[in-house]
Design a binder for these strands. Structure first.
Length: 899
RNA sequence: GGGCACUUAGCUCAGCGGUAGAGCGCCUCGUUUACACCGAGGAUGCCGGCGGUUCGAAUCCGUCAGUGCCCA
C-alpha cells in the first residue's frame, strides 16, 4: 500500500543507485541501436552545483532519458574541465592558509598539491548531479587533464602549429595583474565605473606657451605615450599635424598624428597614444609606426626599463628624477603622484567627472591591464570559417534560431585567440626553446630534441615553455577527445558527431564556438547537429543570482525539501527556449503538488485493485469511458512527443500536467468510480484495464522529467522489474475503436455536469441539496446518454434523476441552462430566487447576443465572405446557427419563468 | 553608439493571421470513502502607444516609448 503522503527522500537515492548499478545509464557501442549523444559541457572541477546547473542538466537529462526510452543508444558523456585559473587559485589559497607560497615549493610540488586537492574535493559537482537524477554514463567520466585528453591536446597543438594555425606573436593581451597571466577577451567583464577625465597640457615643440590638451582616463599611462592623435578633419589642430609635442615628465618628443580614431566630440578632441597599454592606441601606434614602450610590469607597477633611455630633463616640464621615483609604484599610486606632479607644473588643465567601462578580470576582480607580451595564438578566423558555414547551411542549427545572429556576429569578427596562460596548472605547451631562441614544437621532448639536433647540432640543451594552454583549448576538443581521439575508437566512430549541445546563451562563445571550430578542423564535421540555447536562472524579481546579493537558491536544498522531481518539473515547466527563468523556492513548492497529485491518483488506483495487466488490449475496448481516456492518452503522447522533438520542455511538461490532472484525475477517475464501486463484470474489468494502461502510459510519459516518482510507482505497481522504467519503451498511440463517438459522448457529459455545477453555484444551491435534471427538447440520443451515465451525473452533478420533462409538466421555480440541443431544468422552488435566475438568464442571453453580433458583422461583410478561406466562412456560419439556437432556448427558458 | 530580445489577467508566462489562454494568487462554496500539496464554481484583459498591410492583427510591417541583455 502506498503511503498517504509522497516522500521523495524515501526512494530517490535507492532508485538512483539501482539504475546506476544495473548499467541503465551506459551507452553500448556494440549495440545496433542508433546513437543519441549529448556531450555535457564540462563543468568546472572547482564548481559545486548551482541552480543554473540544475536547469541545464534537467533539460539534458530529460532529453537523454526520453531518447533512451525511444530505444536509442544514448550516450550522455560526463566529466569536468580543469579550470586553470580557478583551480590554481583555490589551491594557492589553501596553501596560503598554511603559510606556503607556490613559488617556494616549485612547480612540480605545487602540481602534486593540485592533484591531491582534486582527488579530495574536486568534482563534487559530479556527486551532486546524481541527486538531481542525472543519468550520466559515469564509467565514461573524463577530466580534461586525463592522460588521454592531454594526448589530444598535444596532438591538436602540434598539428595546428605545423599547419601554421598556431604561432607566437607579440601583441597586446588582457593581462590580469593579480594572477599574472594573460586571459581571454571573454574572461574580461566591463564594469561601469565612476572615474575622471583628466585634461593634460602637452607643450607644443617650438611654440612656448602653446599647449595641446589631451584628455585621458588613465593619466599614469602617459609615461608610455609615443604620439598624440587628432582627427584629420579637425580644424583646431590642423596646423599641429606632423609637428611634435613634448611629453611632460619624461621630456620625450612625440609626434602629433592625424588619425580618425580621435573623436573631435570627445574630451578635448586630441588623444594621447600609449600603444603598449591600450588596444585602440595599439592599432593607432601600428598605423603610424611609433615606438611601443611598456611602462608597467607584470604586477602592474611602474617599470622604467623601456623608457629610461628616453628620459630627458626639460625645465618646468620634465624631470627624470621624478619619473625614476615612480619605479616600482603600483599603477594607482603612480596615478596620484603623476597627477599631483602635473598639477604642480600647471600642466593639468582640468578634471571632469567621467563614467567609463573599466575591464576587470572576471575571476580576479582587478582591472585588466593591456600588456604587450609574447604569447601563443591560434588563428581562430581560419578555424571559424567552416563553423560559420555549417550554421549558414543549416548543418548545425540553433534553437531558438535567433541565437545564430549572436554566433555569427562573434565568429565573423573573431580575433586571434591567445591560448597561452602564465599558470602552472594546465596543459604545458609542447614547445621547447634552444639557447639561440629557436622554437621546437613537438609531441614529446625526444622529438623536440631530435628536431633541435638536426638544426643546431648535438649538445644543444632545450628548455620547455613554462606556460600552459587556456582551459578552453582542451574543452574545445571535448566532443571528440572524450571518445578516444586521436585514437580511432568504436566510440568515436559511433558517437561523433553528437546530436545536441545544451547550454546557456552566455556560453555560446566559449563552448559552442570553440567546439565547432575544433570539431570541423579535426573531425571534418560539426560536433553536434543542434545547439539548444536556454536562458539563465534569475531570482523571482528577475535579478541575476549572486552570492554577494544573497539571492541564490541552492538546488540541493530544494531537492531536500521538495524532491528532485519537483525541482525538475518546475524547471521544465518554466524553460521556454532562450528565455531567462525566474525561479524562487515558492515556484518549486507550488509545482510540488503535481507529483503529489499523481501519487494520490496512483494510490487510488491501487486501492481499487488496478494493477498492470499485460493481456489488456486497448483496441478491444467497448465502453465509451475507456475509449475516451485511451484516446485522450494518445493525444497527450502526441503532444508530449512533439514538444520534446521541438525542445519545448514547457509544452512537454504542460501536456503531461493537463492530461494527468484535468483528464485522468478530474474526469476519468471520477467517472470510473461508479464502475469501480459496482459489481465485478465486463465493464468494471474494462475500466480497470484502461486505468492500468493509462497509468502505465503516464508513468512512461513523465519519466524523463520526473524519473524518481515514476520509477517508484512503476516498480511498486509491478509494471516491470525493479529499476526498469528507465529502459521501458516510450509510449506510442494505440488504435482506439470508436474514439470519435466516445469523445462526443464524454464531451457532452463533461459539458452537462459543468453546466449544472455552474448553475447551482451561481444560484447558491448548497451541495447538500440534490435535484432532478429535467430535459426539455432533448433528443433520444441525449436521453440515452443520460441513462448510461446516470450514476456519474448523480454523483458529480448532485442530481437525483435525469429524465425528459413530461408532457404538460411545468415545475415552478426552475433554474435552467442550455446544453447542446436541450435545456436542462433544475426544479429549485425552495432555494431559488426567481429574480436572480431571470437576471442570470438575461446575462447568458447578452453573452450570446454579443457573440452573434460579432459573427453577423463578419458574415455581412461581402469581402469577408468572398476572400476568407471557405472553411473559415463555413465555421462562422455554423457558429452563428449554434448561437441562434442557444438564444432561442434561453428565450424559451426565460419565458418559462416569467409568469 | 551598434545589435538582439521582451512588453498579453494581480504575479509568472504560453499563444504569433481567423471564438484571448494556463499556472499561481484572489473571491464564494465544500467532511461526496485518492488527494486541503484537495474538490466545485467565479471575477479579472483598449494583448505598451500610434500608424500601416489584410476581408480579418495580440499575431505581419513600420514607428515611438519603456525594460533587459550583448557588443563597442
Amino acid at each position: 500500500m502506498l503511503d498517504k503522503t509522497l516522500s521523495p527522500a524515501s526512494f530517490e537515492q535507492r532508485l538512483y543507485e539501482g539504475w546506476e548499478a544495473s548499467g541503465a545509464f551506459s551507452a553500448d557501442p556494440a549495440s545496433g541501436a542508433a546513437p543519441f549523444t549529448i556531450m555535457i559541457p564540462p563543468p568546472n572541477v572547482t564548481g559545486s552545483l548551482h541552480i543554473g546547473h540544475a536547469l541545464t542538466f534537467t533539460i539534458q537529462d530529460t532529453l537523454i532519458r526520453w531518447r533512451r526510452m525511444q530505444g536509442r543508444d544514448a550516450l550522455w558523456q560526463p566529466g569536468t574541465d580543469h579550470a586553470g585559473i580557478a583551480t590554481q587559485m583555490v589551491v594557492e589559497r589553501l596553501l596560503g592558509s598554511q603559510g606556503v607560497n607556490r613559488r617556494d615549493i616549485g612547480r612540480e610540488k605545487f602540481l602534486e598539491h593540485v592533484w591531491e586537492w582534486k582527488a579530495q574535493s574536486g568534482g563534487s559537482i559530479t556527486r551532486q548531479l546524481r541527486s538531481l537524477g542525472a543519468s550520466l554514463d559515469w564509467p565514461r567520466e573524463r577530466f580534461t587533464m586525463d592522460a588521454g585528453l592531454s594526448d589530444a591536446v598535444r596532438e591538436v597543438f602540434v598539428t595546428l602549429h605545423e599547419q601554421g594555425l598556431i604561432y607566437r606573436d607579440k601583441r597586446l593581451v588582457n593581462w590580469d595583474s593579480k594572477f599574472q597571466t594573460a586571459i581571454s577577451d571573454l574572461e574580461v567583464e566591463n564594469r561601469e565605473m565612476k572615474g575622471s577625465l583628466w585634461h593634460l597640457r602637452y607643450p607644443v615643440e617650438g611654440e612656448p606657451g602653446r599647449f595641446l590638451v589631451v584628455a585621458t582616463t588613465r593619466p599614469e599611462t602617459m609615461l608610455g605615450d609615443t604620439a598624440v592623435a587628432v582627427h584629420p578633419d579637425d580644424e583646431r589642430f590642423r596646423d599641429l599635424v606632423g609637428r611634435h609635442v613634448i611629453l611632460p615628465l619624461t621630456g620625450r618628443r612625440i609626434p602629433v598624428v592625424a588619425d580618425e580614431y580621435s573623436d573631435p566630440e570627445k574630451g578635448s578632441g586630441a588623444v594621447k597614444i600609449t600603444p603598449a597599454h591600450d588596444f585602440n592606441d595599439f592599432a593607432v601606434g601600428k598605423r603610424h609606426g611609433v615606438a611601443m614602450p611598456s611602462i608597467l610590469d607584470a604586477q602592474g607597477a611602474v617599470w622604467l626599463e623601456e623608457i629610461e633611455a628616453s628620459l630627458q630633463a626639460v625645465p618646468g616640464v620634465a624631470d627624470p628624477a621624478f619619473v625614476r621615483s615612480l619605479a616600482g609604484q603600483d599603477r594607482f599610486a603612480a596615478r596620484k603622484a603623476i597627477v599631483a606632479e602635473l598639477e604642480r607644473l600647471e600642466l593639468l588643465e582640468k578634471i571632469e567627472p567621467h563614467n567609463n567601462a573599466v575591464p576587470h578580470g572576471d575571476r580576479s576582480g582587478v582591472p585588466i591591464e593591456p600588456r604587450l607580451t609574447m604569447q601563443w595564438y591560434c588563428d581562430a578566423a581560419t578555424l571559424a570559417k567552416p563553423a560559420i558555414e555549417a550554421v549558414e547551411t543549416g548543418r548545425t542549427e540553433f534553437v531558438p534560431k535567433h541565437f545564430e545572429n549572436v554566433f555569427f556576429s562573434w565568429m565573423r569578427d573573431i580575433q586571434p585567440w591567445c591560448i597561452s596562460r602564465q599558470l602552472w596548472w594546465g596543459h604545458q605547451i609542447p614547445a621547447w626553446y634552444a639557447p639561440d631562441g629557436s622554437v621546437f614544437v613537438a609531441r614529446t621532448e625526444e622529438e623536440a630534441y631530435a628536431q633541435a639536433r638536426a638544426k643546431l647540432g648535438d649538445g644543444v640543451t632545450l628548455t620547455r615553455d613554462e606556460d600552459v594552454l587556456d582551459t578552453w583549448f582542451s574543452s574545445a576538443l571535448w566532443p571528440f577527445s572524450t571518445l578516444g581521439w586521436p585514437r580511432k575508437t568504436p566510440e568515436l566512430e559511433k558517437y561523433y558527431p553528437g546530436d545536441v549541445l545544451v547550454t546557456g546563451w552566455d556560453i555560446i562563445f566559449f563552448w559552442v564556438a570553440r567546439m565547432m571550430m575544433m570539431g570541423h578542423h579535426f573531425m571534418g564535421d560539426a560536433p553536434f547537429k543542434t545547439v539548444y540555447i536556454h536562458g539563465l536562472v534569475r531570482d523571482e524579481k528577475g535579478q541575476k543570482m549572486s552570492k554577494s546579493k544573497g539571492n541564490v537558491i541552492d538546488p540541493l536544498e530544494l531537492v531536500d525539501s521538495f524532491g528532485a522531481d519537483a525541482l525538475r518539473f518546475t524547471i521544465a515547466s518554466l524553460a521556454t527556449p532562450g528565455r531567462d527563468v525566474k525561479l524562487g523556492r515558492k515556484r518549486v513548492e507550488d509545482f510540488r503538488s503535481f507529483g503529489t497529485k499523481l501519487w494520490n491518483a496512483a494510490r487510488f488506483c491501487e486501492m481499487n485493485g488496478i494493477a498492470p495487466n499485460a493481456s489488456f488490449d486497448p483496441s478491444k475496448v467497448q465502453t465509451p469511458l475507456a475509449r475516451w481516456i485511451l484516446d485522450a492518452a494518445n493525444s497527450a503522447i502526441a503532444e508530449a512527443t512533439a514538444a520534446l522533438e521541438a525542445y519545448r520542455m514547457d509544452d512537454y511538461a504542460g501536456a503531461c500536467y493537463r492530461f494527468v490532472w484535468n483528464s485522468f484525475c478530474d474526469w476519468f477517475l471520477e467517472f470510473a468510480k461508479p464502475a469501480l464501486n459496482g459489481p465485478d463484470g465486463a465493464e468494471k474489468a474494462e475500466v480497470k484495464g484502461a486505468a492500468q494502461h493509462v497509468l502505465g502510459t503516464i508513468l512512461r510519459l513523465l519519466h524523463p522529467v520526473m524519473p524518481y516518482l515514476t520509477e517508484e510507482l512503476w516498480d511498486r505497481f509491478g509494471y516491470g522489474a525493479e529499476f526498469s522504467l528507465i529502459r521501458a519503451a516510450w509510449p506510442e498511440p494505440v488504435a482506439v475503436p470508436g474514439a470519435e463517438e466516445a469523445r462526443a459522448e464524454l464531451d457532452w457529459l463533461v459539458s452537462l455536469i459543468s453546466t449544472v455545477r455552474g448553475v447551482r453555484s451561481e444560484m447558491n444551491v448548497p451541495p447538500s441539496v440534490t435535484v432532478p435534471l429535467l430535459l426539455q427538447g432533448a433528443s433520444a440520443g441525449t436521453l440515452a446518454r443520460g441513462e448510461r451515465w446516470i450514476e456519474a451525473i448523480r454523483r458529480l452533478g448532485r442530481a437525483t434523476e435525469f429524465r425528459a420533462l413530461a408532457e404538460g409538466e411545468a415545475p415552478k421555480g426552475v433554474a435552467q441552462a442550455v446544453v447542446g440541443e436541450a435545456t436542462v431544468l433544475l426544479p429549485l422552488a425552495e432555494v431559488i430566487d426567481l429574480g436572480a435566475e431571470r437576471a442570470r438568464l438575461a446575462r447568458e442571453q447578452d453573452k450570446v447576443k454579443a457573440e452573434m453580433a460579432k459573427i453577423t458583422a463578419k458574415l455581412s461583410n461581402a469581402d469577408f465572405v468572398s476572400r476568407a478561406k471557405p472553411e473559415v466562412v463555413e465555421e462562422n456560419r455554423e457558429r452563428l446557427a449554434a448561437s441562434e439556437a442557444e438564444l432561442a432556448r434561453l428565450q424559451a427558458a426565460l419565458a418559462r419563468i416569467s409568469d
